[in-house]
Write a protein that binds this DNA or RNA. Sequence first.
DNA 1: TCTCCGAAGTCATACGTATTACTTGTCCCG
DNA 2: CGGGACAAGTAATACGTATGACTTCGGAGA
Lengths: 334, 334
Amino acid sequence: MPGTGRPTSRDVAQEAGVSQSTVSLVLGGKWSGRVSPATAQTVREAAGRLGYRPNLAARSLRLGTTRTVLLIVPTLSAPFFGDVYQGAARVAAEHGFGIVAYPWPDDAGPADSPFAAPHEAIDGILASSLATDVASAFRGTPVVMLDSDPAGAAPTVVFDVASGMRAITAHLAALGHRRIGHVAASIGQWTFHDRGAALAEAVRALPGGSYVRSAGDLEVGSARDAAGRLLDLPDPPTALVCDDDLISAGAYKAARARGLEVPGDLSVTGIDDVQIATALEPELTTVRLPAEALGAQGMTALLEVLDGGTPRPGPLPGELVVRGSTGPAPRTAP
Amino acid sequence: MPGTGRPTSRDVAQEAGVSQSTVSLVLGGKWSGRVSPATAQTVREAAGRLGYRPNLAARSLRLGTTRTVLLIVPTLSAPFFGDVYQGAARVAAEHGFGIVAYPWPDDAGPADSPFAAPHEAIDGILASSLATDVASAFRGTPVVMLDSDPAGAAPTVVFDVASGMRAITAHLAALGHRRIGHVAASIGQWTFHDRGAALAEAVRALPGGSYVRSAGDLEVGSARDAAGRLLDLPDPPTALVCDDDLISAGAYKAARARGLEVPGDLSVTGIDDVQIATALEPELTTVRLPAEALGAQGMTALLEVLDGGTPRPGPLPGELVVRGSTGPAPRTAP
DNA sequence: TCTCCGAAGTCATACGTATTACTTGTCCCG
DNA sequence: CGGGACAAGTAATACGTATGACTTCGGAGA
């Protein structure tokens, strides 16, 4: 049903007593030399009076561009991605771009029917943590990956998790910990795989350091069980490094269920530094991943791609935040 | 820059040896009577060969519709809204609609420039928890409000928080609690105001019931201080009802800082039942708000509005989830 | 044999915008 | 006083799609 009664640029033109082209010239901003200030003022007033807003579909059709970027996230249910969005949106706004978020769970892709999904009216994609499918499903659309395997074809912004893991290891080592357990996320994402590899390497580089590992889902109950398996070992670790703040919550539970105090009997660390880190008791020692910067860097890179460039963004360092969940290693094994 | 090389329906037509109209007729689905099965097959094959995807801008311009709905949420950093999204998306998909999420923080609106924000290419809006501004900023676009003041002009889907508060009160009363503290969110949103009013009424209806209240921001530290003010009263409450699960985390901290055990010395409840509720120790007794249903009902209502109707959705009841944070009231005041 | 009808397509057009090519009028300078 | 440069604005057009109006053609009924 075309013509919903919304005013068009032609209506504005009529109201202002000029031609449609003039309205477009005025409201377009550029072309300042081609229309007199007086006329421009008249047009702007007419537009305001009518409450004119340009039809985006028409503009997109004409320009072949939407100035909109799609941010694909695995879920909207994780606080982390709010910051990613903020960072991307900030940079985007500086360049007249907008961002819409699209949660893409692991299953169905949009490439099923010959008809497009509504989120295809975009110029580019920022894809967080979905390794390969995105690029192929949106073939032809520029993509920048966030915190994903940098070996892929698309430009990728990654966290320097390795340095974060080294920082955690150094912190724990300074407290006297040598036997360190890793509670991993069993998701097959690059970023988690990388965390595990970096931690194992850092711990083994430690004099007398030993590394044990157990994996669970990214969910409190499963994380509790995974942590419990480490604590039930004959020679249990004195510190648990968790792949994610939420996993740490599970580690706390496993510890308390066995009568262990955190951090007196067991030190625990997380990664991310989201809200839950300060909601826990004791508050969590963790590595703060700069999610806002991830979004911002990603958007910057995407703008570069849209300009025809091939950016090679550097890794973003994490920052160790020491709170109450880490303490000196106990003298005797519990 | 029009013509990015993407195939158009005209290209498909040429490839298939038919006219552009025929391509449109075939791919449109309806009009089955107007084209022979053989031709339709040819067209579909050509489209597949070329990887044709319709230009959404052109379609929107032609149809005056985008089949896309904007979901406005206060933040992407709160897990609650992920479920809202899922519910809305499920119903939307059944009707060929798509949904994009747009986090709208409290400040800047999109109505600044005469030029539209990219998220205006939509047919309707689901707005969560932003009372008035949305409707005015998007004047002319159908809006359905979620969990907001039902006194507004737009159709509104609300939670029945009153019944949830009554359930909490009954639960606490059965455990012997009479003096009940309310740790409120100081945000001026309808839903929180309503929670407070409902709780106060329920508690005062209790024989011997007394209600005290303190407010803080929706943030752990502030919530801890607010809860602390109640615990430091001469005659402190034996149970704290929190406006939100996150606030409960603050209440835990305030209690432990004063040497109080949860639930031995103090019972605590939340509202929402998000992830943090089970991450806390003890796990939180709370009222589960059906966020998925909120999104689904909202989308259903919005579809009705788009059809010219004026839906009057009923309130969605919450469900009391009893976990470990509530217990019998202590005999003597701590 | 002539007419009429349905099937199978094609033609033409409009949606609202941005921009290029053109027109008109004014002023300045030789 | 003539002409050209420039300012200020207008006319025309294309972007890609969906669809109502039209065309063509083979066959069936009179």
